[in-house]
Every structure is written in structure tokens, then in C-alpha cells.
């Protein structure tokens, strides 16, 4: 049996932010490889560079130096528009603050991504029903985000992030706004759905329980990797 190919490859990555006269280094010469189907937890304190790394891999930010390959594409070589189209097709995002579109109901929040990917209305309906069933919200398609609990909103966000079957799911503190019970449900769901799709997942967290769901745990400190442990 051959080993799974590399899905995410980061080389000599640097990201700096200017704060007035000073330059703040957020990521400093980071190298990383994640295989297809692997789930990885990025752990570290606030400001350690976790979210920045996720944003760079997802193509919503650009590095000052280094390269990033995701799904055989050199993301750092893409133009702004190409990165957007790449993200649209290959990346799914889950945020701590859910970030659902408040003016769209649950079904339309998911449909939005499907439409962006050119999925026809009828097919989208089927896919939305599947996803909502999968996240346990089969009867909430017509509800608006503001009437859902935090856990329910995050389940919708997961369904939206996975709707187009992305190669990589990037989750930034997905349970940060949830109580322990809801967090458990959401993590189990994420783990199950991503693995069933054979997708790759990178979760930024400072929670031990989140890390326990992952194949690998990488510790990040002051923009550098401190440890990389296979669980």
C-alpha cells in the first residue's frame, strides 16, 4: 500500500505585520507537510500565529516569504482572483464566530457556496438535505441563524464548509464559542464528516480535547513550531 500523497506543503513560511514603526513577526520560517486525509491540530496561545497560518493556507492572506502548496497547487503563486477561485473549489472554512450570513436562512447559507461552485438548484437541494440531515438539522433549513443556538449555528457552518466537498477544511477555534457539550457534538461531527469524505483538516485551537480528535498535534509558539506529535 502506498502512503497518501502530501495535501498541504509549507516551506520557509514567513508572515510579518507592521505595527507602527515596529514589525511584528507572526510566522517565522515555518515548514509543514500534511498528508491527504490527515487531521491536524495547531495548538498555541493567542497570537502564536495559528489563525494566520490557516488564513495563508486558505489563500485569504499572503506570506512575506516562503511557499504553500495545497492540493498540488502553489497557492503563493496564484493571483488574487485565482486564489479566490481556488479557495472556492478546494477549501472549506469553519470559524469560531460561525460567520453565517444573517440575512439568509440555513438552507440558503449552504446553497450560497454550492451556487458559487456552479451546482444546479435541484442538485443543490439534494445536497443541502443530505448535509442538514448529517449535521442533525434536517428540519431547520428554513430557520434564520439568529434563532439557532451556538452549537446549531456551528453545525450549519460545518455543513456549509463541507457542502462542496473541499480537499481541505480549515477550522479556526471551531468550539471556542460553545459549551463543553456542544463542543463535543461539533468536534465529533467534524471528525466524522471529514474522515468520511477523505478530506484533510487543520484545526487551530488551544483546547486539549480538540487536539485529542486529531492524528497529529503541532505546538506553535511565537511563530515557530515547538513540537509535532502523532497521537
Amino acid at each position: 500500500m502506498t502512503a497518501p500523497s502530501i495535501e498541504i506543503q509549507v516551506r520557509s513560511l514567513e508572515r510579518r505585520f507592521r505595527e507602527g514603526e515596529r514589525e511584528h513577526v507572526v510566522l517565522d520560517d515555518v515548514d509543514l507537510e500534511i498528508r491527504r486525509g490527515e487531521t491536524v491540530a495547531l495548538r498555541g496561545r493567542s497570537g502564536s500565529g495559528k489563525s494566520t497560518l490557516l488564513n495563508l493556507i486558505g489563500g485569504i492572506d499572503t506570506p512575506n516569504a516562503g511557499s504553500i502548496r495545497v492540493a498540488d497547487t502553489d497557492v503563493t503563486a496564484l493571483s488574487e482572483r485565482e486564489r479566490t477561485l481556488f479557495r472556492r473549489r478546494h477549501i472549506g472554512f469553519v470559524y469560531q464566530a460561525f460567520n453565517l450570513v444573517p440575512t439568509l436562512n440555513v438552507a440558503d447559507n449552504i446553497r450560497l457556496v454550492l451556487e458559487l461552485n456552479g451546482v444546479k438548484h435541484a442538485s443543490a437541494d439534494v445536497r443541502i438535505a443530505e448535509l442538514l440531515d448529517a449535521v442533525g438539522l434536517g428540519d431547520r433549513g428554513a430557520s434564520y441563524p439568529d434563532v439557532l443556538s451556538g452549537g446549531e449555528q456551528q453545525r450549519v457552518a460545518i455543513a456549509r464548509a463541507l457542502s462542496h466537498q473541499p480537499a481541505v477544511l480549515l477550522a479556526d477555534e471551531p468550539t471556542g464559542n460553545l459549551d463543553d457539550q456542544s463542543a463535543e457534538i461539533v468536534l465529533a461531527l467534524l471528525d466524522e464528516l471529514v474522515r468520511s469524505m477523505g478530506g484533510t483538516m487543520l484545526i487551530a485551537t488551544h483546547s486539549n480535547s480538540v487536539a485529542s480528535y486529531c492524528d497529529r498535534v503541532i505546538e506553535l509558539h511565537n511563530g515557530r513550531f515547538e513540537s509535532d506529535t502523532t497521537t
Binding site: 486558505g58 479566490t84 477561485l85 479557495r87 472554512f93 470559524y95 460567520n99 450570513v101 450560497l112 457556496v113
Partner: peptide, 16 residues
């Protein structure tokens, strides 16, 4: 602003 940022993260182009 966060909503628009999310839409951009989901794959909407600046023109969209």
C-alpha cells in the same frame, strides 16, 4: 464587514 469577509473566504470574488 465580517459578513463580506466571510463571503470572500467562501470564494466570492471581489467583483461578486
Amino acid at each position: 464587514i465580517r459578513e463580506f469577509a466571510t463571503l470572500r473566504a467562501l470564494g466570492m470574488t471581489p467583483a461578486q
